[in-house]
Simulated assay, not measured.
Amino acid sequence: MPLADPLDERLRHAMRRVLLATLPGALASMWVFGWGVLLNLMLSGLTALAIEALVLRLRRRSLEPDLRDGSALVSATLLALALPAYCPWWLTVTAVACALLLGKHVWGGVGSNPFNPAMLGYALVLVAFPQHMSQWPAAHGLGLADGLRLVADIGQPPDGWAGATALDSLRINTSLTIDELFASDPAFGRWGGHGVEWVSLAFLLGGLFLLQQRVFTWHAPVGMLASLFTISLLFWNGSGSDSHGSPLFHLLTGATMLGAFFIVTEPVSGARAPLARLLFGAGVGLLVYLIRTWGGFPDGVAFAVLLMNLAVPALERFVDARQRRPLT
């Protein structure tokens, strides 16, 4: 029997730890949004495994090492956690197919993708199906039967099952102060989005576990969070009706923590040199705030990551030139 490739073993081990680290965030998301999160995860995972097996067969490659490396399942899991709970089945399948086919295999498979596969799949369905991608369930979600009908895209959804997110409400607000929004709008919680703040803290917990396990370094997450905190602090004008939200609000709302610890740390499409990783994360944080505040979408993590993926070669050249520069 041939010995296992040490690189394959390290990849599988890292992917297993990433999946384990998503568990607190997934459980918190289920507590907030209900069964739809679990349905997303199951459908996304099965779709990813089926597509991965099909592509490997078409490429006449063995299923054993490639299907078991866990990369497809990790991309599917992150994508499922980013998609709105109870989104129709065809939306999830389309997002996963785009992520794996256009974000991974068209470039040659694992280790060759210039873009983050999960964020590419998310961005494509966000542009193609904006109405479905904006339907986030109200807190505590729906029962299993209603959730299955929504996912199966059968019949009419229950009245009032979906509502605006905190980022949506802040974006369209023109008259209420921040204090009034937090007091009157059910989308707002204590510090950020209602329930989402706890989901964010759960993803933070999983991210700290990955840092402790040295799955990735601190540079990209710290760069993103520090940049987002700084820019939101600079443009924060208190609780007036024209406020863009406090730094704490931006850290604990939307996909900030998921992005900081599970997306910008993707090793293939991200930067490699430590300083380049720091700049990569900082660029993502800056773009997230700009898109949330003045762009066309309420969050922006996916687009920020993809834009910074394009900048990775320039960042690497800048860092390399800086390191080669002679001391004077």
Rank of each mutant, 00 (worst) to 15 (best):
A152W: 08
A311M: 15
L234M: 10
V55F: 10
L101K: 04
M133K: 09
A164S: 15
L248I: 14
G281Y: 01
D153K: 11
G193M: 04
L27S: 05
F203S: 03
R292G: 15
D242G: 15
V288C: 13
G111Q: 01
G240Y: 01
S29V: 06
W236S: 05
A26W: 00
R60P: 00
G259K: 03
G103S: 09
T165N: 04
T256L: 04
M15N: 15
R149P: 03
L126W: 10
L211E: 03
G109R: 05
W294Y: 10
W294D: 00
D179I: 02
Y86S: 08
L49M: 13
P186D: 06
R214M: 00
W198H: 12
L170Y: 00
V222A: 14
F229I: 13
T293N: 10
T328Q: 01
E64M: 12
A255Y: 07
L91G: 01
R277H: 00
I51W: 05
L205R: 00
V288K: 08
G189C: 13
L225F: 09
A273S: 14
D185I: 07
F33Q: 02
V93R: 09
S71Q: 01
P88W: 04
A271W: 07
R317T: 07
I154M: 09
G223K: 09
R214T: 00
T253Q: 02
V199D: 04
E52Q: 13
H13T: 10
V96C: 08
L306S: 03
A82T: 14
T177G: 14
V96Y: 01
A123I: 03
R272C: 06
G285K: 06
A271K: 08
L101H: 01
G141K: 00
L275C: 05
S62T: 11
G70R: 05
D168E: 14
G34T: 08
S112K: 15
V199C: 10
A273L: 15
A255M: 13
Q213D: 06
V264A: 10
A76K: 07
L120P: 07
S112I: 04
Q156F: 01
A123P: 05
M119H: 07
W107E: 07
L63C: 06
P313A: 09
A202L: 04
F209I: 13
G25A: 12
L43V: 15
G147C: 05
L150N: 06
A21Q: 07
A138H: 01
A80G: 04
A187W: 05
A26C: 01
F33C: 02
H140L: 12
F129E: 03
G300T: 08
G163F: 10
R12K: 14
G245C: 02
H132K: 11
L3C: 04
D66I: 12
F209L: 15
S227N: 10
L91C: 08
A260V: 12
Q131I: 14
L91Y: 01
L208F: 15
F249L: 06
T177K: 03
L201H: 03
